[in-house]
Design a protein around this nucleic acid. Structure first.
Lengths: 108, 108
DNA sequence: GCCATCTATATCACCCAGTGATATAGTATG
DNA sequence: CATACTATATCACTGGGTGATATAGATGGC
């Protein structure tokens, strides 16, 4: 009620996506089209290869320690991502995707 | 080498934080001052109570399902956060903090 | 009123990502 | 060469995250 409200647009996008999700589950639109909606609303998240993750970090010239701090995770975890011993998923993957698309600044 | 480079500022901030971290570990600055640096660089992440998480979601008028999709996590997980059965940590917590500070848009 | 739909809550068992510690090996910088 | 800093490598542990399913409210249309 008091702040500026850039809320409207994203709200609508979400409505659209919800609707599309429903249509998909009912079977009225196929998987391919559903993906388009996902992409449209920037809700799709793709896997991140170890090299990609490292590249993402190196691009900003920061150490694994700082990178871990930014992501609020442990150094050990970042290492395993980069070596390929463990693969990020869920919110971790989402964050990495955001950083890839929007730059490290989104996490600051 | 080719793109625009808004890189410089965040780079410096990170340097500052790294330095502060070192100073803290050595014992030259105390915990309170360290926290200031954390806050300055927006690297601190605070816990999120179940109510807070729910409030965050309700504020945008979205369902748990959509919220989960945005965070790239499962509905089940969001539920447990809101009930208090599990508490988000790591990248999950970071994302929630970002959304709290910058709004849901950061995740889109 | 009743039925259909969406949303939320609840509970289950599984397991792997994430953690913390520690030890070693590179690689700069003085 | 020595002293940092950074990266790689294992290790054992555990709890956060997952997926499925079942129930209960809430909403809305006929």
């Amino acid at each position: 009620m008091s702040m500026t409200k850039p809320k409207q647009r994203s709200r609508i996008l979400k409505e659209v996506h919800e609707m599309a999700t429903d249509l998909y589950e009912i079977g009225l639109i196929d998987k391919r089209r559903m993906r388009e909606y996902d992409a449209l609303c920037h809700l799709d998240v793709h896997e991140m290869s170890p090299r990609k993750i490292r590249a993402l970090r190196k691009k900003e010239n920061i150490s694994q320690a700082v990178f871990a701090a930014i992501l609020n995770t442990s150094v050990s975890t970042v290492q395993k991502w980069e070596i390929g011993e463990k693969k990020p998923g869920g919110a971790s993957l989402k964050l990495l995707n955001l950083i890839e698309r929007k730059g490290m600044e989104v996490a600051l």
